[in-house]
Amino acid sequence: MAGGKHILGGLLFVAAAAVGPFLPAWLISLLTIALASALVVLGLVLLWRAGLVSFGQALYYAIGAYAVALMMRWTGIHDAFLAVIIAAFAAALTAFFVGFLLARYREIFFAMLSLALSMILYGVLVKTEALGSTDGFNVSTPTFLGYAPHGFELTVALYWYALALGAIAAVIVGAYMRSVAGALAVPVRDNEIRVEYLGVSATRLIHLKLVIAGTLGGVGGAIAAMSISHVDPAMSYWTTSGGFVFITILAGAGSVAAAFIGSILFELVRTASVALMPGTWQLILGTVLLLTILFLPDGLGSLFTRRRKVAGESAQ
């Protein structure tokens, strides 16, 4: 079953890469941004499986984005590969330190504290004149190991790059979910104390998930920064986190693929609604979120997997 999924995923990856150059530029950019969001969402899915919703994932997203922007500005190195490594490292380090604190919290307190932390970063960014304050600043054009494309070529190159990173992340996260540590997520959500009786530290498990999710968030932010070629503090505002949480709920915690499908749908609907019915984007978003929670509590992914979950978790 898993093998079939891998083959299907591989085929989709090749198809997505192959059609890239034949798509209009706006659609490629949209897909690149969707891939960036999908990485962040993958991290949120990991947390969501353990029953945790982070309303502050924009913290890592913004740190990744600013890390790339600052590296290019300060060192003059524009390499996209190095940029992503630095962004991932910066976000992972943040998640590691913040994790000592966050991993002790559950439910709403976890959501609120992660929200507070991202809002602290927002406050710092807005007040830092050197980083452009509320306007942010522009990100230079990335190069790929010496290859320096421009215009449409750059758009396609970034898309391929995001696609490759997305594929790598999907494989790693998929493998993690099937590992013992990944599989323990659902038991942690259902009954943490029993998990501890089995000799596993739930706190340490969640700390690990936080670091993985943070790293993915940082990489997502790095891609977004290079694709938009601009960073600003709004990237760390709570509404950005809210958008990621939205996609997570829409996609559901069932599968890795759902994170990608959900992100692409999200970006498509956003673009369509902004173009066709300006001023109603949040209305559509809210309605879809509501309908998803009411009628598809396991997300879009559950339409495909048809796996029935034990419905006992809501009865305290």
């Binding site: 029953g51 919703v53 439910e107 709403i108 959501a111 809210g242 949480v245 939205f246 709920i249 001023g279 109603t280 984007w281 949040q282 209305l283 978003l285 809210g286 309605t287 979120l289 509501l290 929670i293 509590p297 978790e313 809501s314």
Partner: peptide, 18 residues
């Protein structure tokens, strides 16, 4: 879940904003 209800009110918030 409490967290699900937070998201429901978040949806309501988005709708009311528009």
């Amino acid at each position: 879940d409490e967290v699900i209800i937070v998201l429901v009110t978040y949806a309501a918030f988005l709708i009311l904003e528009d």
